[in-house]
């Protein structure tokens, strides 16, 4: 298993191999995200019971929670890709990091907006400068910083290094986001779903959420692979295999 993973890791470093193998993975991600998101949305919006306090407005959770999960895990993936790029000098890691950044920024934006829409009817305000909301806003700015840095610097190698460093340094924000609700008094409630405890809601409520989270991850795989494949073609435009590939089309 370990050796297999190691081989996969080394092979993925080759642009050509990356392009070929991800072409095979793509349909699975498409199918998984369509099935999971449809199931999750129908279950969450039509079949999950109302909440005894919040009524139907809690259903926005089925978008808000997966988006917030992804906002944080995409950032960690981006930082991990940054470490791989800096230490092992694998250029494909930078392609993946570049593909991840706008998707992560979009997820952060979605979680901020859905949070505001949820906050108005339940808390009575769109926004409050509490630790959770503020650290999430900082995450959004970090994403924008990484995207802007790449656009601002050339050549590509310099931009790649700078982006990797910023992504790695910004990772410190992730535990702050996660534990903000435990460390400080906040308006945002603590986590309902924890790996170590059973969820603070019945199965009829958390199953749709589980489907939505998995669906969001599949959607992430789909969109990041698409973006990374396009970027590989752009960067390798002069190489033999890309010319060969384009000749057939």
């Amino acid at each position: 298993m370990w050796n297999w993973l190691k081989t996969l890791y080394h092979r993925l470093g080759s642009p050509k191999w990356f392009y070929q193998i991800t072409g095979k993975w793509l349909p699975w991600f498409v199918a998984a995200s369509l099935v999971l998101l449809t199931t999750g949305l129908v279950m969450g919006l039509a079949y999950a019971p109302m909440d005894y306090q919040q009524g139907n407005s809690f259903r926005i959770m089925y978008i808000h929670v997966p988006a917030a999960f992804l906002a944080q895990s995409v950032y960690m993936m981006m930082a991990a890709a940054g470490v791989v790029m800096l230490v092992w000098k694998i250029k494909m890691a930078d392609v993946v990091a570049q593909a991840l950044a706008p998707v992560g920024a979009a997820m952060t934006f979605i979680s901020l907006v859905t949070g505001a829409i949820w906050g108005m009817p339940t808390w009575g305000t769109w926004w409050m400068w509490d630790a959770r909301l503020t650290s999430m806003l900082i995450l959004f700015f970090l994403y924008l910083g990484v995207i802007a840095l790449r656009e601002a610097l050339s050549p590509q190698e310099v931009a790649a290094k700078a982006c990797a460093l910023l992504a790695i340094v910004g990772v410190i924000n992730i535990p702050i986001i996660k534990y903000s609700v435990d460390w400080w008094y906040t308006l945002h409630q603590p986590a309902s779903i924890k790996l170590t405890e059973k969820p603070a809601m019945p199965a009829s409520m958390y199953l749709p959420l589980l489907f939505m989270v998995l669906g969001f991850y599949a959607l992430l795989g789909w969109s990041v692979l698409l973006r990374a494949r396009a970027e590989v073609l752009r960067r390798e435009a002069k190489s033999g295999w890309v010319r060969e590939l384009l000749k057939d089309k």
Binding site: P49, M50, D51, Y52, Q54, T122, G124, Q189, S192
Partner: peptide, 16 residues
């Protein structure tokens, strides 16, 4: 200004 805070527990009205 008074803001409501809700906790992390969700449940259907019948259960409550």
């Amino acid at each position: 200004q008074v803001l409501a805070r809700h906790d992390e527990n969700y449940m259907p009205p019948e259960v409550a």
